[in-house]
């Protein structure tokens, strides 16, 4: 079941947060990269139906988010959404919070709802914290609790805005395991490029409200192939340079000093930095999905 955006845009007065965008999102994990203010959260909120688009139409699993009330409700039944920030009622217990969201997601059969609450809490490793009040949970545990509510009911479209913020390496690895086992569409907005390279089949880069890149991780890495070097001195005109633990300087882009620097394998972060440093070509996207 795919999700489609057709000429979707969002403006706040004269400020355009998202220019007209057309995308089809199939199953698998899709990473959404971009600087702050690029329009990532706007796109996720539009897809979740928390925000209405200024123009265009959105369909989730065949149901129009931008259609009639009945159609929007049908679409909402198929969406799991993790906002960037969740303000918890701190007096609630972990299970009480997820139970409340389960009710909002129309789990009317009480025993089945409680089993589902238990399932998602176990999935994120909070099964033994179910009866603990949220104010007693750590930041990482609260983030996992927020993720748990998004996983309720096996959604067709799972939208996660910065899911790994506040998680330690083990918890991030655990979340990757959970997400990679899903068979639905998972859209992750993140600044953690290592999450993208470890998890995503496809990457979309947004910049200033426009799709700058849309393709596979390999295609994104190809942007930086042969353009990342390591040597005793920084490359001239490099987008980014830093001294590594070996004492050598890693340079992203620029012209390396002949004879002393060697080309190294680029990372998704290198490719992203180079992509951002390259002027946009009239809004033309790169990659296989463009």
């Amino acid at each position: 079941m795919s999700t489609t955006l057709r000429d979707v845009s969002k403006s706040y007065g004269r400020t355009v947060a998202l220019h007209p965008t057309t995308l089809t999102l199939g199953t698998g994990v899709i990473g959404l990269l971009g600087p702050n203010g690029a329009g990532k959260t706007t796109m996720l909120r539009l897809l979740s139906s928390a925000l209405a688009p200024t123009t265009g139409s959105i369909r989730v699993a065949g149901h129009a988010v931008t259609g009639s009330h009945a159609e929007r409700t049908e679409a909402r039944r198929r969406i799991g959404y993790l906002p960037q920030e969740v303000v918890f009622p701190r007096g609630m217990t972990a299970a009480g919070f997820v139970d409340y969201v389960a009710v909002l997601k129309e789990w009317r059969d009480t025993p089945a709802r409680h089993r589902e609450v238990r399932r998602v809490l176990d999935l994120v490793g909070l099964g033994d914290r179910a009866t603990v009040r949220i104010r007693a949970l750590s930041g990482g545990q609260r983030r996992r609790l927020a993720i748990a509510q998004a996983l309720l009911g096996a959604p067709d479209l799972l939208i996660l805005d910065e899911p790994t913020t506040g998680l330690d390496p083990e918890q991030r690895a655990s979340l990757r395991g959970i997400l990679s086992a899903l068979t639905c569409t998972v859209l992750i907005s993140t600044h953690q490029t290592e999450d993208v390279s470890a998890l995503c089949d496809r990457v979309i880069v947004l910049d200033a409200g426009r799709t700058r890149f849309d393709g596979t991780v390999a295609e994104l890495l190809a942007v930086a192939a042969g353009r990342v070097h390591q040597g005793p001195a920084p490359s001239e005109g490099a987008v980014g340079t830093w001294k590594t633990g070996t004492g050598l300087v890693r340079s992203v882009g620029g012209t390396p000093e002949p004879g002393t620097s060697i080309a190294v394998d680029p990372t998704v972060e290198d490719a992203y930095l180079l992509l951002r440093a390259t002027p946009a070509r009239g809004g033309a996207d790169q990659g296989a999905h463009a």
Partner: peptide, 12 residues
């Protein structure tokens, strides 16, 4: 309502 952002995209 601290959960408005979560409640808005639900079918309830």
């Amino acid at each position: 309502d601290p959960l408005r952002e979560l409640a808005a995209p639900t079918p309830f």
